[in-house]
Design a protein around this nucleic acid. Structure first.
Lengths: 212, 212
DNA sequence: GTCTATATGTTGATAGAC
DNA sequence: GTCTATCAACATATAGAC
């Protein structure tokens, strides 16, 4: 169970006119999100999604309720992961600057581990109810992150010459921008080196320490 | 001339069934790009664009050749501005670290001054020929910026523990992320404070200098 | 320059045979 | 579970009257 095409209990007599196409719902969602990210949510048609899964459009509809529901599942997964990461950070009860660094690290890790889902989430515009709901949840997470920056600023642990809200936007804008280029498997930077680089640049900047 | 509805040389006898709608081509493009950014390029229909301009769909088509051509003009404007800013930076012949700081500053300024156009550019996916051409031009600009970072790294002026390509992506990812939230006129950070903050965070980081 | 009307294709979604 | 066939809605784009 939880597979898409069932167990062929009739002993193979079934015509199977298309490709076998036996996906778990998770594998199917992975595939769908891949197409969403390639062509954009609006630019991807149900026909595109069906073809990518090796099914006809009708068969595809037999398994999924519709395009919007697919989006809801996908962005929900991203939001849950980001939310959980932030919960874990808060549970450490560390000093403000360390809380912030931990949030940056964990958010970056979620982004790398759930890359297609977070990528899709970050591109949501707000045309439909599903999208607006996702934006609202995302704003709530951003607000929690901004609060972390604010606390660190009030503790004097980050520079006072930049507004905490602006600092938060730049910081997590940098983190989120990873979705623009990171492709796992490609010969780019490793997960660890990215996490270290983000945290490093965020806290101490690019310039060589001590250089003029 | 260069207006959209002409000079009404008949002395006002024209029926004018819709809204007056007298735009320069630039004002019309501004309006179009606004809708593109609100709904997404794929999500915005010609009907949407026409309605936003106060014209019927047909009248709108009388003035513009089609949706894709509107996109070409819009992203072309963004690409030209970014390219020109980078040319200006190179013409200063400064030290590597100062070249880099200047590129960050000028790129940020273009982003703020041409916000809707650059925002649209940064969201281009690559579904059509126009989009792929824009992506190619954008990649060329990114490569020039990455080269600046590399030179600064080789001169020992930025930290050696981060791969220059990764540093470049994080740095300009942070810069580009401004399009996600900046809204001129809203009571957010001013142009100057944003430019200063970006340059500051990029080079020296968020952490308070000298703090543990 | 603007309109109404329409041509033509594509989209999300369903009906019903096998 | 899979297919072919089809629908209603909406898309881009054009024709032609005023």
């Amino acid at each position: 169970m939880s597979t898409v095409s069932g167990e062929a209990a009739d002993g193979g007599r079934t015509p199977q006119r298309g490709r076998p196409a036996r996906y778990t719902r998770e594998a199917l969602l992975d595939l769908v999100v891949g197409v969403f990210n390639e062509r954009g949510y609006e630019g991807a048609s149900m026909e595109d999604l069906a073809r990518a899964s090796g099914l006809t459009k009708s068969t595809f509809y037999h398994h999924v309720s519709g395009k919007e529901e697919l989006l809801r599942m996908a962005v929900g997964r991203a939001l849950d992961a980001l939310s959980a990461a932030l919960d874990e950070t808060m549970a450490t009860h560390a000093r403000p600057i360390d809380l912030l660094a931990d949030a940056v690290r964990r958010t970056t890790e979620v982004l790398l581990d759930e890359l297609p889902y977070v990528t899709l989430l970050l591109r949501v515009r707000g045309n439909t109810a599903v999208e607006r709901e996702a934006l609202a949840r995302r704003r709530a997470i951003d607000a929690r992150l901004a609060a972390l920056v604010k606390v660190a600023a009030e503790a004097g642990e980050i520079r006072a010459d930049i507004d905490p809200r602006l600092a938060s936007r730049l910081l997590f804008g940098m983190v989120n921008s990873i979705t623009e280029w990171y492709r796992p498997g490609a010969r780019t930077a490793s997960r660890t080196s990215i996490v270290d680089a983000v945290t490093g640049v965020a806290l101490t900047g690019l310039r060589t320490p001590g250089a003029s």
